[in-house]
Design a protein around this nucleic acid. Structure first.
Length: 626
DNA sequence: GAGGTATAG
DNA sequence: TTTTCTATACCTC
């Protein structure tokens, strides 16, 4: 009873993806020739990331440019201050992964991390297993089309695994597996299926988009994220059972977590870590001053904390609670230290909750400058709104452009609030020094509706928005007539409300499904025999090619040496398929395959049009185009 | 709803 | 904590 809320739920299978040196990988995907060269991405005066060729030559993250040039004069250093290309690549990768979930539980963290809850897919495939031939299993990635998927060995975990015994006493561990109780054995099997699915997704991510990734497989967001780090880059690690300690075995989860610094535990950030360290050390935790970045801290391990007898949920609550701290923080942190994290992988969203643009300044202290900056930030904000809140651009789908000549794009969501944030520089102290502050202050207003008018130019809208709302907000924020000194300005839209068309979209077919590859689309449509004299089996040829897990692992292992295969995105569909007509299962329309992507998107965009009595003249265009 | 804090990459 | 620009969740009033 004591820990009813602290018993771990290990029923889920969760995969955490982390794309390898993402910024550098984006440049490599654009120009595959860079893959074999030392490549670093620069923002301001530092290397924000670099590829492994560069790391072998002595470069590292957050290194000063001057140092980097000294260490490796012939490194290629590219400027990465404009985030557009990273944002676009991130969206493509995310939509691709999302299209491979059934529950649509796919959560993004920053540009380069994604969690997927694949419990339903694993359970489904568990039921398909033939206990007599586990070595020759087939993993179905689509419920609709049983031929889509890959064959695999359900007796072997794909990729690397983590277990307290591995590496030192492999044999003993194998024996231990047989001694696990039924629940842990079942968990072992579900994790095994998860590991094969993860390998399949990594392979597709590389084949279709040209990105390698580092992946963790476990039963929570916490452990999947942490365990992935054990083998990187371009690899995957599964946290093996036993998850629950018995008299005979320690829990692998606890053994794993205990060796981590508390600050390395996700969601135990700087503040919480410092408070916990102070409690355990019985004195303020010392900083290492003088470090450029981050790790100024004394090490206190999770195991050290767990073994302090008076560390309980309630003692942690007392220690960590305070104004602003989340309620139940003690229970939450106690759980994290014990590898318990029941937070769900959140449902994919078609629109962000907030968009903000900010810039920092060495000196920003007169109205003319401030107005100029407000204008520039606001313009960028309105541009971002049209990119991120409008239905998918057709630039990558020429077929659809012919369907909607004019801008018939709809808002996926509309923000209702406009917020202006600044970071004032503190006035001089009496002794002439200036203490630094990173405190921000903000004011907000209702966002006027005119910003959604697509007929008006972004420039015109910007001028009006600055005059009518941002300037009043600025005066509200800084009522004094002059003497401002701002080190940062941020303009944001928030209070996002999904529009009706998006809500409809979300409950039916989602945006991600439009992103599927052509061969994926064949799952949704029946190949019509009257126009296709090819045997139906041909449809799945390409998926059967990426089957045997050993082969997958080998090809992934050799990634750094082989050419990027982004072109496969366009080219890997079976040539014969290009000649085959297909029928839409939704409206019965017969058409060549190449019309499908547009056709499918057409359904998703305007589902109501297909009620016969509501057909608009636009439908004629659909027929004409096929 | 408004304004703030903590955490993350 | 301090490097910058975002994004999210959750707190108090």
């Amino acid at each position: 009873m004591a820990h009813a809320s602290l018993r771990r739920n290990d029923n889920r299978i969760i995969i955490h993806f982390d794309y390898d040196c993402f910024y550098a990988a984006v440049f490599e995907a654009e120009d595959p020739a860079l893959k074999s060269l030392p490549l670093a991405v620069q923002q301001k005066q530092i290397i924000v990331t670099c590829n492994y060729a560069a790391r072998r030559r002595g470069l590292y993250k957050l290194q000063l440019i001057t140092e980097a040039k000294k260490a490796c004069p012939d490194a290629i250093i590219v400027l990465g201050e404009d985030l557009t290309r990273f944002r676009n690549a991130s969206k493509s990768l995310y939509n691709f992964l999302r299209s491979h979930t059934w529950s649509d539980r796919a959560e993004k963290l920053g540009f380069d991390e994604v969690w997927m809850d694949v419990t339903d897919i694993v359970e489904y495939n568990l039921a398909l297993l033939n206990q007599n031939s586990l070595r020759d299993s087939f993993f179905q990635v689509s419920r609709e089309d049983p031929t889509q998927g890959f064959s695999y060995d359900a007796l072997t975990v794909a990729g690397q695994s983590w277990s307290a015994g591995l590496g030192t006493r492999l044999q003993a561990q194998e024996l231990a597996l047989n001694d696990l109780d039924a629940l842990e054995k079942d968990l072992h099997l579900r994790l095994t299926l998860g590991s094969h699915f993860a390998l399949f997704l990594r392979q597709r991510l590389y084949d279709n988009l040209g990105y390698t990734s580092t992946v963790g497989i476990a039963t929570s967001k916490l452990v999947s994220k942490l365990v992935g780090n054990v083998n990187k880059p371009n690899n995957q690690t599964t946290m093996l059972p036993p998850y629950i300690a018995t008299e005979c075995y320690p829990s692998n989860i606890n053994a794993f977590l205990d060796t981590h610094d508390i600050g390395a535990v996700p969601w135990i950030g700087f503040k919480l870590a410092q408070k916990i360290r102070e409690y355990v050390l019985q004195r303020p935790a010392a900083f290492q001053t003088g470090l450029v970045y981050g790790g100024s801290r004394e090490k206190v391990m999770v195991g050290d904390v767990r073994n302090v007898p008076d560390i309980t949920s309630s003692s942690l609550e007392k220690l960590l609670a305070g104004p602003g701290a989340p309620h139940g923080i003690g229970t939450k942190v106690f759980g994290l230290l014990h590898g318990i994290d029941d937070t769900e992988v959140s449902q994919a969203r078609n629109a962000p909750r907030q968009i903000s643009i900010e810039d920092s300044y060495v000196r920003l202290d007169n109205l003319a400058q401030i107005l100029e900056q407000l204008h520039s930030l606001t313009l960028r904000l309105l541009q971002r709104m049209r990119i991120d809140l409008l239905e998918a651009s057709d630039a990558d789908e020429p077929a659809l452009t012919s369907l909607n000549e004019a801008s018939t794009k709809q808002w996926l969501a509309k923000p209702e609030i406009l917020r202006l944030t600044t970071r004032p520089r503190l006035p001089l102290n009496p002794d002439g020094t200036r203490s630094r502050t990173f405190k921000r202050i903000s004011r907000s207003m209702q966002l006027p509706n005119f910003v959604f008018n697509l007929a008006e130019s972004e420039q015109d809208l910007t001028s009006r928005l600055v005059a009518e709302t941002l300037l009043p907000l600025f005066k509200k924020l800084h009522p004094e007539k002059s003497g401002w000194n701002l080190s940062l300005v941020n303009v944001a839209v928030t209070g996002m409300v999904d529009t009706a068309s998006n809500a409809k979209n979300a409950e039916g077919r989602n945006i991600a499904s439009m992103f599927k590859k052509q061969d994926d689309f064949f799952a949704d449509f029946k190949v019509t025999d009257e126009v296709s004299n090819k045997p139906r089996e041909n449809v799945t040829e390409q998926t059967e090619g990426v089957n045997e897990s050993d082969g997958l692992e080998k090809s992934l292992a050799s990634v750094p040496d082989i050419e990027s295969d982004v072109s496969q995105w366009e080219n890997d569909s079976d040539g014969d398929q290009n000649l085959r007509d297909v029928r839409c299962s939704e409206c019965g329309q017969l058409m060549p395959h190449f019309a499908f992507v547009a056709h499918e998107r057409y359904h998703a965009l305007e589902p109501w049009r297909f009620k016969a009595e509501e057909r608009s003249p636009d439908d004629v265009d659909v027929k004409d185009s096929v």
